Simulated assay, not measured.
Amino acid sequence: MMLAFVTVDSPDVIVIGTDPFFSVLIAPVWRWCHPSTRIVHWCFDLYPEAIYADRSIDHRSLIPRTMRLLMQASYRACDLVADLGQCMAGLLRGYDPQMNLVTMVPWALSEPTVPLPTAKVERAAIFGDATLALMYSGSFGRAHSSDDMLALMRHLRGESAVLALSVKGNRAAHLREQVSPEDTNIRFVPFAATNALEERLSSADVHILSLRDSWVGAVVPSKFFGALAVGRPVLFCGPRNCAIAHWIERYGLGWVLEPGEAAGVADQMRELLHDSAALQAMRERCYKAYREHFSRQVTITEWQRILAALIASPHLRDEY
């Protein structure tokens, strides 16, 4: 925040992220010190909404109500707020229905130039001779649920389908406790090193991600983009009002699994066991969708267009 007071030359635009939490609180201060600067907030996670989703504090108490007023003032000090999808945009509109919003998603850490072929050595080490390899790789914390994912794999017992879990986070131990000795088609594997990420991601046929209902809009799982970037379909265990589910169904990128639907999705997975051509077509479709809608180049190009328009016509809210 001190930077707002010591900066002499006002920049044309500043972009404020969400690391650390509540970084956007600097927006009114910067607006007061540098009224000519255009302020943009790229919102990767919503706070205090994530705290409410965790149910670690009652949102009706004094501190959350005060924080909401501060966040409302901060958002209104911004010329533009970038969200990560329609579910996050809906929560942001609750602060100001006229908020100037645009969706700008984060790109994947790894962006191969072609859909990656199966990493055979890594696959054999993790999945053995399974015909269908499913993987959950990444953080597993309070925002995530395992119930539907495990229910699916229990429907697939006896099939040539294996789920590998490469997880860390504050609910990883709970996930391990949920897996019983009877779950012979579920196994845990260590985290992959950053330089081995592509090989790990490309060893699986399907990548799984999850999100609890109460967290919808507060966060958007970034693992989605990493899976598409290497050409792998996604199984999303979460509600259909999430942006991830919307993209999956709009572009044909995989499956959405809500409570009570495990048996039906398991039937669809069984079809893939006997249809390698359909799985390959899904890989190509996922890679194509990533390149056309979610890639680094697409996002940066859109940022350049939007920021140029914002500087030229900062009061035109219909530009986006």
Rank of each mutant, 00 (worst) to 15 (best):
I300K: 05
N100Y: 05
M71N: 01
A289N: 00
L152W: 09
R232G: 08
D54W: 00
A172P: 08
V216N: 00
L201E: 07
I51T: 13
L257M: 09
S56T: 15
C286S: 15
I300T: 13
D267I: 07
L257Q: 02
R142W: 10
Y52R: 03
P181M: 10
P48L: 06
R38M: 05
Y251N: 02
A229V: 07
V220S: 13
V105W: 04
L84I: 09
T18F: 03
G260T: 11
R157S: 12
A227Q: 07
I306V: 15
A266E: 02
R31T: 13
I300Q: 12
G17K: 08
M104A: 10
M67W: 09
S74H: 07
T37K: 04
R31H: 11
M2P: 00
M269H: 02
R187V: 08
P233K: 03
L92E: 02
R291T: 06
A196E: 15
L62V: 14
L272I: 07
G85L: 05
M88I: 12
E271K: 01
V179D: 08
Q86D: 12
A278T: 13
L235R: 05
A245S: 13
G217C: 02
I208P: 04
I306L: 15
Q72H: 00
V13L: 10
C78Y: 03
P11R: 02
D45S: 00
A193M: 10
I244E: 06
D205H: 15
L228M: 12
L152M: 06
S210T: 15
A82H: 03
D9C: 12
W303Y: 14
Y251A: 12
E261T: 03
L279I: 10
T103Y: 01
L253M: 09
S139C: 00
F225N: 09
P106G: 03
S202C: 10
A196N: 13
Q268P: 04
D205A: 11
R60G: 03
V298G: 01
T184D: 00
G217D: 03
F22A: 13
M135T: 12
G158A: 11
A193L: 14
V114L: 12
I39E: 06
R38T: 06
P259W: 06
E199H: 08
A73W: 06
R212Y: 08
C242M: 02
G260S: 12
A289P: 01
A289M: 00
I306P: 01
C237I: 06
A263G: 10
D96I: 05
C43S: 13
S10W: 02
A204K: 06
S56M: 13
D147K: 05
G138D: 10
D275Y: 05
N185T: 01
V162T: 11
E292F: 03
G238M: 08
A172L: 06
L101A: 11
R187I: 12
P221M: 12
G94S: 05
L211Q: 15
R142M: 14
Q304L: 08
A151S: 14
V234H: 09
T131M: 03
S295C: 06
P97F: 01
S36N: 11
Q86C: 08
F140N: 02
E198I: 10
S202R: 11
A243N: 11
A262W: 08
A193I: 04
R250V: 07
Y251E: 15
L307A: 13
R93K: 15
A204I: 02
L272D: 03
